[in-house]
C-alpha cells in the first residue's frame, strides 16, 4: 500500500551546489505532524526550503504522490505545499485579510481577483486560526504571535496537502508557543494535513508530534517517534554531551 504524500529518496541538500547534508530518506503521509530537529546550522531550514522547492536539491529525488517533484509546475506545487518562513515581512499598510488572500493566488486569475469560493476559504482559514477579528488591521501593527498566526492562515489559504513551518515558535513567549502548537494539532486533525516544522523546543513539542526527524551532527538522519527517540538515547546522543 502506497499512500505517501511525500517521499525523500537519497536526498542531498545544500546551497550553491555545495552539499550540506546527504542521504536523507523519509516518508510523509496524511495528517502527520513531524518535528525537524538538529543543531543550528545542521541544515533544517535548507531541508524545509528544498521540500518547498525554493531551493533545488543537490542530489536524490523528492516524490509527490509517487511522481518526481520536477514534473510539477510551480503553480501545481503551490497548491500542494505551502510554507511559513522565518524571514520577517516588512510591508506597510497591508491588511491582514489582504495578506491572507494572497494565499489564494495559485488559484486566482491574472489580476488576482478572489471569487466567492476564494473569499469563503479566506474567511474559513481566518476563523480556523483565530484571526478573524484582526482582518481589517494592518499586518505591521500586530504582535509577533499574531503575525505568526496570520502567516499560518495565509499558508492554509493555499489549501495545501503539506504545510511546512520554519521555526514557527522561535520568537514567541511560552503561552503563545503552546497555543500555536495546539493550533497546528487542530489544523492537522481537521484538514488531515501533513505538517513539517523545525523547532528547538524539544520539551514543548514532544507530546504534540507524531514523528521526529533528527539531523545529527555526525551527518546521520534519524527518524523516530518521540518516545522511541527518548528510549533509544537518540536525544541524549545529539543534544547533550
Amino acid at each position: 500500500m502506497k499512500n505517501n504524500l511525500l517521499e525523500l529518496q537519497n536526498l542531498s541538500i545544500g546551497f550553491n551546489k555545495k552539499s550540506l547534508f546527504e542521504n536523507i530518506n523519509a516518508q510523509v503521509s496524511k495528517g502527520m505532524i513531524i518535528a525537524l530537529m538538529g543543531a543550528n546550522g545542521a541544515g533544517k531550514s535548507c531541508l524545509l526550503k528544498t521540500l518547498a522547492h525554493l531551493i533545488a536539491p543537490i542530489g536524490g529525488d523528492i516524490k509527490i504522490h509517487d511522481k518526481s517533484i520536477n514534473v510539477f509546475s510551480s503553480q501545481e506545487l503551490a497548491r500542494f505545499i505551502s510554507i511559513v518562513l522565518t524571514e520577517k515581512i516588512q510591508v506597510d499598510f497591508l491588511k491582514v485579510v489582504e495578506l491572507i488572500s494572497l494565499g489564494r493566488s495559485p488559484y486566482t486569475n491574472w489580476l488576482g481577483d478572489l471569487n466567492n469560493s476564494d473569499k469563503k476559504i479566506v474567511s474559513q482559514v481566518m476563523d480556523q486560526v483565530g484571526v478573524f477579528d484582526l482582518a481589517e488591521h494592518f499586518y505591521s501593527d500586530l504582535s509577533d504571535g499574531q503575525k505568526q498566526k496570520v502567516l499560518i492562515a495565509r499558508a492554509l489559504a493555499q489549501q495545501p496537502e503539506i504545510l511546512i513551518l520554519d521555526e514557527p515558535t522561535t520568537y514567541l513567549d511560552i503561552p503563545s508557543k503552546v497555543e500555536l502548537l495546539k493550533l497546528l494539532q487542530k489544523i492537522s486533525k481537521e484538514s488531515n494535513m501533513a505538517i513539517i516544522m523545525s523547532s528547538h523546543d524539544l520539551d514543548l513539542i514532544e507530546s504534540k508530534v507524531d514523528e521526529i526527524w533528527l539531523m545529527g551532527k555526525d551527518g546521520s538522519f534519524n527518524i523516530g517517534s518521540p518516545e522511541n527517540c527518548r528510549s533509544t538515547g537518540l536525544f541524549d546522543k545529539h543534544f547533550y554531551f
Partner: peptide, 18 residues
C-alpha cells in the same frame, strides 16, 4: 500586478505561491 502583490511579502513567498 498579481506577481507584484505576491512579491510584497518576499521573493521566497512569491515563489512558494507559484
Amino acid at each position: 500586478i498579481k506577481s507584484l502583490n505576491q512579491f510584497l511579502l518576499s521573493e521566497n513567498y512569491a515563489k512558494s505561491m507559484g
